[in-house]
Design a protein around this nucleic acid. Sequence first.
DNA 1: CTGAAAGCGCTTACAG
DNA 2: CTGAAAGCGCTTACAG
Lengths: 339, 339
Amino acid sequence: MKKTTIRDIANEAGVSVALVSFVMSNQSRSADKVYKVNETTSRRILEIARRLDYRPNKAARTLRSGKTNTIGVVLSDISNKFFADIARCIEDRAYGYDCTVIFGSTDENAGKLENLVKVFMDKGVDGLIVVPCVGSERFIRSLADSDLPLVLMDRECSDVNTSRVMLNNGAALSLAVSALADNGYSKIEMIAYDMRLSNIVEREAGYRSKMEEYGLSDNVAIHRIPYKDIYGQIREVVVSALARGVEAFVFATNTLTIAGLKVLSDLGVTVPEKVRIVGFDDSEAFELYGTSITYVSQPVEQFGIRALDLLMEHISGGDPLSRKTVMLQPRLVVGNSSQ
Amino acid sequence: MKKTTIRDIANEAGVSVALVSFVMSNQSRSADKVYKVNETTSRRILEIARRLDYRPNKAARTLRSGKTNTIGVVLSDISNKFFADIARCIEDRAYGYDCTVIFGSTDENAGKLENLVKVFMDKGVDGLIVVPCVGSERFIRSLADSDLPLVLMDRECSDVNTSRVMLNNGAALSLAVSALADNGYSKIEMIAYDMRLSNIVEREAGYRSKMEEYGLSDNVAIHRIPYKDIYGQIREVVVSALARGVEAFVFATNTLTIAGLKVLSDLGVTVPEKVRIVGFDDSEAFELYGTSITYVSQPVEQFGIRALDLLMEHISGGDPLSRKTVMLQPRLVVGNSSQ
DNA sequence: CTGAAAGCGCTTACAG
DNA sequence: CTGAAAGCGCTTACAG
């Protein structure tokens, strides 16, 4: 019941282990490739391998070759729907690359991020996909300077020469503002996070510049909510904004959108009669809300797919100068909440 | 810039690699343990290791010892909130065991499950946590007969001698029925899946027996929805049930609950005025629904924690006769939807 | 208490 | 076209 090794096959076939190894590795190449190995021998070896149910020992292969066929993905929180969806896409696509994936969640904590990356490197990964968090910039820069292939996702990190896949965050909030301004609303306020994450910063910039474009500079108001007690914080903001006669809210993230809708619902403020909103990201929660939600949609699956493809490109050589930035475009889904 | 190995340390310290290896592995034991190695030497070796930033090569260690410090977790779909939450718990807890986790999603497809398990075994895992799916019973039985530690989660698989962590599914639906019957409702119908998953079957049994307990056998009605086009299927069921004068619905899963609420909302059937419902699992979507939902709550984090603990117990020896079944208890969260 | 040596299973030059 | 051999970095008996 011991696992069969390359040596067992060699004995059985009466050839050297080297030849078996050669045949086995060529096997995984293109099917139409003509082996340089004698075809009869090769066929015999393959046959024996199948009969003995040969499974290459990955640890030995890794030790020898240095390749692990494993990649590490460091994201904020895998139980968050956005990242869970991305994780799923990466998992599926990695399968095609004959590659397994290990995930880690940072909870927006730079220390955890650093630690996770170290654990993954110790474990042995061929490359890393990382969602930066506040405070991790320096570490990520040093990481990029090492020779481990790296792809950044969802959030920028300045002065890092590597590939990345990002959302056009400015465009996302421009779409949100336009959706409301085009319906004649001008008192549009933004609810964002306190955190200085690049994507949040860019979304704020998108909001601001679009407001200016509509000549609404004087109405610009960005509310930066601390990461804890979101509901309570938003409630305060909403109450005072309503008192000032706000006409609409745009939200910087999905979590903020849900919390905002919950607040409005609890306050008995109907949408879109009393106030208009444009959300961020889709959510199954929207379906149970009374009115259909207008929201900015991200091509979630593209995050995973493109990031993995870029990483694989790095891993399989590819000159370091060919680093690419993939900019994903947001899309507006129009519902009644912005009418 | 090459990675430092045990040999570099040995050279630097003027001792054998064996001694270094011995010191390094003892180091990871209890801190108060007195080394049998000369303390000065040991200290010097440790010091050099730190100075040279020594990181043990996991592949070499695995090749030699056969241990990978990796476990595989096979679940339905990691982008599903329930499983994503579990994944997160397992990830966090595995860290404490100095162990990494690889996840795989079956999409309720026995072929995928089988394939994933094989990939994980080839990759090398010390153990497996598996959520069975319909049709995977035979394969899982054969898996349990191999010597790879295995823990079943969320769903049963008969005749498998291994540990498992399950929800008391019967009790879950009993709670749901009681919540409604105690409020005087008797025409309570259940919406479940077509799939013959053990947890669904047990939930149906729980519904049925509780109805009988209340003397409502004649009102028992279980609607089994196919896995595709859930919304459309539920809509048909709901419309005809309403025509028959149904008073309440109980749902077998979270997805069904959300879809059901959506259908009711679209039909303009208000809850609890026109019909009462008890849902399954919490969801952020409930927060945006007009009335608070009564639902059966599962201790989600316990699934991950207990399953991992059981698996680790298997892995670190533990006699095969001590297989345990952990039965998690559901809890009823009362809202207005059942009043 | 410490060292020399074998070996885990594979791949990769290097001969022939 | 095929084989003998070295070596990836570690751990584990076995000597001394």
